[in-house]
Design a protein around this nucleic acid. Structure first.
Lengths: 199, 199
DNA sequence: CATGTTTTGATAGTAGCTGTCATTTCGGAG
DNA sequence: CTCCGAAATGACAGCTACTATCAAAACATG
């Protein structure tokens, strides 16, 4: 996402090492599969010691689990004009971020997604991140509604939105997230509203 | 839940062994913590070999992850009169199942929940189960709506309902799920509906 | 009781992850 | 440029979850 070049030589080398490890790992994962790739192999391919690997990534899983889009989405939502209704602001924010992704970033995302679909452990972890995203989202929503951050109202809306989004991000689903998909989400939300009418 | 006594001696012994392992594990977990308890210790406490442990539970995590309530909820929803609106049927189904739990079962649930709150790995796995529950729920909802099982409409509603429910089952929340909590969920859904109105 | 099947235990091995400590690499002060 | 303190690295040892294999024991059935 936002690629800021850090100052010190040390910092830059660290960033390079980190990238080298991740690139090597992703390459090996796609070549031979996740389970079949050992940390030792990754370390060797990245020309570092296994110790160093674990200094950069606490677990083998974490190599795949770097996610910068969620915070970006939150920022984009926050940037929407305050008179926009909450749900529309959320949809617009998501849409903006996804539209700005470069083709290369999309490719990386797709590779990651494929790994998630294949490796149950990774999938479990990703879900955890998703749930964390609910908190983030609930925070922004609460802001917009002028409620305290832990208001039931905000948390419910966030939970429902993420729940619905999850529904469209299932394994096997093409995660393209272009205009047509947003229409689909919108339609889904409308039908949801109608089902809630009898309450 | 439904405790059916199996016929053969072999089956009964297997059930007993399984229970012994789980009981020993849960006891040790609460005594010394999850991470600090090794499979070897559990096996010893249950008077089986480590090999046997892994025959009964594929991973250490699975000892904690036995869930019989989700299917029960689905069955209860299915048992609601067909003229009841979907959302009400779901709420009623959940409520019935939770009301039928014995105090002992509640205690076990609470212990499990505490472990989930403490151990991130377990939490991740539990989430995965939750997502699987969305599928189950979507199935029943589709039935009621007379739609195909993979209809967006059903999946959306299921996703939203589970998402909202998740919101009220967070770490730190008291998972009592009695009448007052159901009112809370209902109110949350009503506010959700109102926020979806502008669409 | 004799048979075949299922369950179990022992053993050995792999790999993820942690901790420690000496060595190297880097940034800044003189 | 040089020296010094701090940070990064690598080598090593160790623990534990998990797998694979195979022989022994427990059970079911005739």
């Amino acid at each position: 996402m936002t690629t800021e070049v850090p100052a010190g030589l040390r910092e830059r080398k660290k960033a390079r090492t980190r990238a080298a490890i991740r690139d090597a790992a992703m390459r090996l994962f796609t070549e031979q599969g996740y389970a079949a790739t050992t940390v030792e192999q990754i370390a060797e391919a990245a020309e570092v010691s296994p110790s160093t690997f674990f200094r950069y990534f606490p677990t083998k899983e974490d190599v795949v689990l770097t996610d910068d889009v969620d915070p970006a989405v939150v920022a984009a939502i926050r940037a929407q004009p305050p008179e926009t209704p909450v749900v529309d602001a959320v949809l617009a924010g998501m849409r903006q971020v996804f539209e700005q992704l470069t083709e290369e970033e999309w490719a990386g995302e797709r590779r990651r997604q494929r790994l998630f679909d294949e490796v149950p452990d990774l999938r479990a972890r990703q879900l955890q991140q998703t749930v964390a995203a609910v908190d983030l989202l609930a925070g922004v929503i609460a802001e917009r509604l002028g409620r305290p951050a832990d208001a039931d109202e905000a948390r419910t809306l966030a939970g429902a939105l993420v729940g619905v989004t999850l529904t469209f991000l299932r394994p096997g689903e093409a995660v393209s997230f272009h205009l047509e998909d947003f229409d689909r989400v919108r339609r889904a939300l409308i039908s949801l509203r109608d089902h809630l009418a009898p309450l």
